[in-house]
Amino acid sequence: MSAVIERRAEGPTLRQRLAARGLDGATLLVLPCVALILGLFIYPFLYGLVLSFEPKDGSLFGNYVRFFSEPFLYGTIVKTLRLAFPVTLLNLLIAIPIAFRVRLLRRQRLLTTLLVLPITLGTVLVAEGMLFYFGPQGWFNRALMAVGLLSTPVSVLNGYWGVFISLVLTGFPFTFLLTLSYVTGIDPSLENAAATLGAGPAARFREIFLPLLVPGLAITFCLSFVQAYSVLPSAVLVGDPANATRVISIAAYQAAFEEYDYSMASAIAMIMGAVQLLVVVAALGCRSLFYRGPAAGAKG
């Protein structure tokens, strides 16, 4: 390809005019990527949406009517939120003070590396390990009985608390690392400035850190919530998938791969997406009430 551009008297070539709008060979590089997302994300989503309105009984809203009339199905929303909300809030509430402490450490890498472990190991392995560790003969119960805190083994598995603990174990590191990156993103000289102006530790947190952190914490909340919300393996492995921890993803999975009702499964997936969207919009809505700009002073 030669780089010589033909100059015509009438004005710029089509190529030059397109390039002036930012469209040239390099811009086209984005196309394969866009095609992939359109084909494998947007199209299936739309397909699922249409499919959800074509239930087996032929009516338009049959699946949605069925979902919201059967407690076995609509109850999954409540069960999912009852797990995801407290877990996400707890993780966030623990993560903030810890991030503030770790921020002061000079060697954060070892700690952050240890915390990355459960994220990479994933929910399946954590659930598998919990079966042992928290089992009636596991080290957890043994240790608590040995120091006299318990007289009989406590059973956390096969129920709400099993899933709760597994979500904290896999979710906390994620929440913590995100929070840490927001906390360390705040210019330390802002805290120094507040201190020289007479603000004590509590006032510095209230007046400086909190308002600057809220936007980031809202995003952290959303991303952590999404993780907890779409829990599947631990709800099955360490929970009570038929009852207390029958979360919405189990309902969707069963509709698709046990009843082979793809239409119903798509409907549940759409409802799942809609509920999640509501929570995310609400969280981001709270965020827009606060200052949203660079937290690093003038440098941005």
Binding site: D187, L190, G198, G200, G293, G297, K299
Partner: peptide, 20 residues
């Protein structure tokens, strides 16, 4: 004394204005 107890005023190199 801690900085907040000294009551001095300080101007920082990057200004350190509270952006919010």
């Amino acid at each position: 004394l801690r900085p907040e107890e000294r009551g001095f005023g300080m101007v920082f190199q990057n200004y350190a204005l509270f952006p919010h």
